[in-house]
């Protein structure tokens, strides 16, 4: 396509035509895609956006790493809505989570962001690609109701509506305007409240039981490093060094960053002295950690403006200070 504005809506046309579709970009393109992330959220169009994060703002640091689009991924389009964002930290996970991203987008009918950073994006490592038959695929939720009985935005028990595709005789209507269960524009306070509320509520499971994370050494931890993406691999080194120095450090690696796994962080907070949050930005996900910890432990940001990764020593220093 000619630009990211186009790509981000072409994929949605393809989805309503019956295909699965995704698009890939980096910071400036991601900014251009925001309008259509909102459109996908509003029209509940399952699709996947991959953002390989570079330093910003603007053209910033092309091909150099950052993790500074995390808030944009969550809040970048106008209005209230929810999305799912996943943060792989290896080529293998890029492959695996790409499949998860498609599956979750179909199950919850939301745009799913795969938030890489330049390091993970350009990394070369062994990747095991399983047999196609061994891959779990969540099928599109096509309705079983015939045209006439089917209502395009009538949610099932899990608050997610079933879908149709163009050409199958349903004569349906999709709009980015606030719409009723038939899909017709209905611009009033009640419809706005119920539909926007549902867009957020259907993703609630990701704050707890459906959240994806990787943890280690949490049982006895006094300090937990909360990290994601490439930073989690640097953090692992700092955790190991801290343990060598006798500080009981643990790992909480965020895999599903949005919705934020706040129930897990909230449960962990009273059990530890501190959470250390290294990020390749000047403070984004740390706000969520603080919100979930709600004062029950210290929360310390280890910022980095991007362009390279943290020095593990910087994270180690923060762990040691936090343990005091």
């Amino acid at each position: 396509m000619e630009d990211e504005l186009a790509a981000s809506i072409t994929i949605q046309g393809a989805v309503w035509g019956g295909a699965k579709a995704f698009t890939v970009t980096s910071g400036p393109g991601f900014s251009l895609m925001m309008e259509h992330i909102g459109y996908a959220a509003m029209t509940e169009t399952p699709c996947v956006f991959v953002d390989v994060q570079r330093g910003g703002p603007s053209t910033g640091l092309p091909t150099l790493p950052a993790q500074a689009d995390m808030m944009q991924a969550r809040w970048g389009s106008h209005g209230d809505y929810g999305i799912i964002a996943l943060c792989p930290n290896s080529p293998q996970e890029c492959f695996d989570l790409a499949i998860t991203a498609f599956n979750l987008s179909e199950e919850f009918r939301v745009p799913v962001m795969l938030m890489l950073d330049e390091c993970v994006g350009h990394m070369t490592e062994k990747v095991i690609i399983p047999d196609a038959a061994a891959i779990d695929v969540y099928p599109r939720r096509f309705t079983h109701l015939p045209p006439g009985e089917f209502r395009l935005f009538e949610p099932r028990e899990d608050k997610v509506p079933d879908m149709v595709r163009a050409g199958d005789g349903y004569r349906f209507h999709v709009t980015g305007l606030t719409h009723d269960e038939r899909g017709y524009p209905s611009m009033n306070v009640d419809t706005q409240r119920s539909s926007v509320t549902r867009l957020l509520e259907k993703l609630q499971p990701f704050t707890g039981e459906r959240a994806l994370s990787e943890t280690a050494d949490l049982e006895d931890a006094e300090v937990v490093v909360v990290s994601y993406g490439i930073t989690s691999r640097v953090a692992q080194r700092a955790i190991d060094l801290a343990r060598q120095k006798g500080v009981r450090a643990g790992k909480f690696r965020i895999i599903s960053a949005w919705p934020f796994p706040e129930k897990h962080i909230a449960a962990l907070a009273p059990k530890v002295k501190a959470m250390v949050v290294p990020e390749l930005n000047l403070g984004q996900m740390v706000h969520e950690v603080e919100r979930a910890a709600a004062g029950r432990c210290k929360v310390r940001l280890v910022p980095h403006a991007g362009g390279t990764v943290h020095n593990p020593e910087a994270i180690l220093k923060a762990i040691l200070e936090a343990a005091e």
Binding site: G13, G17, A19
Partner: peptide, 12 residues
């Protein structure tokens, strides 16, 4: 561009 995606996915 939306229409382009629709057509590509379902040329009929």
């Amino acid at each position: 561009p939306f229409a382009t995606g629709l057509k590509l996915a379902n040329p009929e």
